[in-house]
């Protein structure tokens, strides 16, 4: 008897605590997903309450649409560049800051600060002052010192200078945050390990880093890579703000934005594309979990 009342109380507090979030989840996540799935089977142009059923036609259209398939390639290229670069850069920053004997808090804050800046604001700064195509743009000024001609960074896809702009803005914004994660992990490595290594004759520097630091950072590294990949999947702002009226450099979200919300107002195709993307993300996440072992409980080992 006592047991049931405890259970009841537990159940009540369970619903009390999870209820609001569950309702939010249903209203703002599951209902829209369901609605999308429904929309994706209709000819839904300029309306979200369509009447013409078209079956899987929207899916066929999206999967044979060159622009949508290109957007998946664009994203893959983007993730392939930005993930390792940010990982390496923030790890380097963390190692440097960790070595500081004084002003460590100062540098930690300075490197972390860009995280507080919005992608839109940073994109505009990158576009209009750092990588502007005129002779007084920051990048062109620096190139000018070496006698190199002005470069229009964003106008043309060939050579693809726009990748430099897009990757650097994300690098600048994100590295500080991941540096903090690495710093925390670095400070968690027991000094005894380094002492033992020194006694065993390991050289300071590369050898210690390769055989002590890096393996000790494995859990954090995996988490950072996963977070970076998710962030890359969600990339929208910098592409949207930096590249205007292009047919290239559009990751899936930008492509879908233009399909569904832009001038085309095609909610049927937009929803079909969104669901294709969702399936892809699920598959990739599952595969990643399998290979990197992220999220696997201790007890399973």
């Amino acid at each position: 008897m006592a047991r049931t009342s405890v259970n009841k109380a537990t159940a009540r507090s369970f619903w009390l605590f999870t209820g609001p979030f569950l309702i939010g989840l249903i209203v703002f996540v599951y209902v829209p997903i369901g609605w999308s799935a429904w929309l994706s089977l209709f000819e839904a142009r300029s309306t979200v309450t369509p009447t013409t059923f078209v079956g899987l036609d929207n899916y066929v259209q999206m999967l044979t649409d060159e622009a949508f398939v290109d957007s998946l390639v664009t994203f893959t290229v983007f993730a392939a560049i930005v993930t390792p670069v940010t990982w390496a850069f923030s790890l380097t920053l963390a190692l440097m800051v960790n070595r500081l004997r004084f002003m460590r808090a100062f540098f930690r804050s300075v490197f972390f600060l860009p995280t507080a800046c919005s992608f839109v604001a940073a994109s505009l700064i990158w576009k209009m002052s750092v990588f502007s195509g005129v002779r007084f743009g920051l990048a062109n000024t620096v190139l000018g010192w070496f006698g190199i001609d002005n470069i229009a960074w964003l106008a043309s896809p060939d050579p693809p200078w726009y990748w430099l702009v897009i990757v650097t803005v994300r690098l600048w914004l994100q590295s500080g945050f991941y540096m903090i994660l690495f710093l925390a992990a670095l400070q968690n490595i027991p000094p005894s390990l380094y002492e033992a290594a020194a006694i065993d004759g390991a050289e300071r520097g590369w050898q210690t880093f390769r055989y002590i630091t890096l393996p000790q950072l494995r859990a954090t590294s995996t988490a950072v890579i996963l977070l970076l990949l998710i962030a890359a999947y969600q990339a929208f702002d910098e592409f949207f703000n930096l590249l205007a009226k292009t047919t290239w450099g559009r990751p899936p979200l930008v492509e879908l934005y233009f399909t569904a919300l832009g001038e085309n107002q095609d909610y049927g195709r937009g929803s079909a594309g969104a669901l294709i993307l969702t399936v892809l993300i699920c598959v990739v996440t599952l595969l990643q979990g399998k290979f990197l072992g992220f999220g696997r409980g201790e007890e399973e080992k």
């Binding site: 990588f131 502007s132 195509g133 005129v134 960074w153």
Partner: peptide, 9 residues
């Protein structure tokens, strides 16, 4: 051609 102004603020 290089005579076109591009990426102006």
């Amino acid at each position: 051609s290089g005579s076109l102004l591009l990426d102006a603020p």
